[in-house]
């Protein structure tokens, strides 16, 4: 994973609540066996409507997306994170995210930044004309108009994102602890393993 310290640029003022993962990437795009090329299918049903923000030249190439509450709800498809990444979005700012989406975003180095609705309302205004900066070190979102909103993220995730850590490597370094757990369960719970013919 590439380290992410800062994302800055224009932001797409989408603003919608309960954006589900079927809206981010619909099922027909899930038949791929690769992680790449999904940007083309991102927000397909929204883009079918004239005057949608995603096709507005004003926001072409914008690396930030602003949305409403409960972003990424629904299916566990990581294709949603891959599609956002592939369309060039590196940070999503919303009042809340679904648990699975927020984890999928994290695994792909996408920033899921939670900010209260008042901050979202202000950023939606700024986004129409000016760029926004998300800074991981100071955990803040700023605008050229001296707005400064700080956000929270668990310190482990923050560090992993800033260092671009491979989480599997990190866990594999704990294989002794994993083995100890397995030994403990094997002796205490003889019934534990599924009976597989």
């Amino acid at each position: 994973m590439k380290p992410v310290r800062k994302v800055e640029g224009r932001a797409i003022p989408f603003g919608r609540k309960n954006v589900d993962t079927d809206v981010i990437i619909s099922a027909k795009w899930l038949k791929t066996i690769s992680r790449d090329g999904l940007g083309e299918g991102a927000f397909e049903s929204v883009r079918a409507q004239e005057g949608n923000v995603f096709d507005d030249p004003e926001y072409a190439g914008a690396p930030i997306l602003i949305a409403g509450d409960n972003f990424g709800c629904g299916s566990s498809r990581e294709h949603a994170a891959w599609a956002l990444d592939d369309m060039g979005v590196k940070a999503i700012i919303a009042p809340s995210f679904s648990d699975i989406f927020s984890s999928n975003a994290f695994k792909n180095g996408l920033l899921a930044i939670p900010l209260p609705q008042e901050a979202i309302d202000r950023l939606m205004e700024v986004a129409k004309t000016d760029p926004i900066t998300v800074d991981m070190e100071s955990m803040s979102v700023t605008t050229p108009f001296q707005d400064r909103f700080t956000f929270e993220m668990d310190p482990f995730r923050q560090q992993c994102l800033m260092d671009g850590v491979d989480e599997i490597d990190l866990t594999m370094a704990k294989s002794d602890a994993i083995e100890a757990h397995e030994t403990r369960v094997d002796s205490a719970q003889s019934w534990h393993k599924p009976v597989m013919a």
Binding site: I100, N104, T171
Partner: peptide, 11 residues
Amino acid sequence: GTSEVEHVLAT
């Protein structure tokens, strides 16, 4: 998600 599927498979 799929990254977690990979993580569980491996660890």
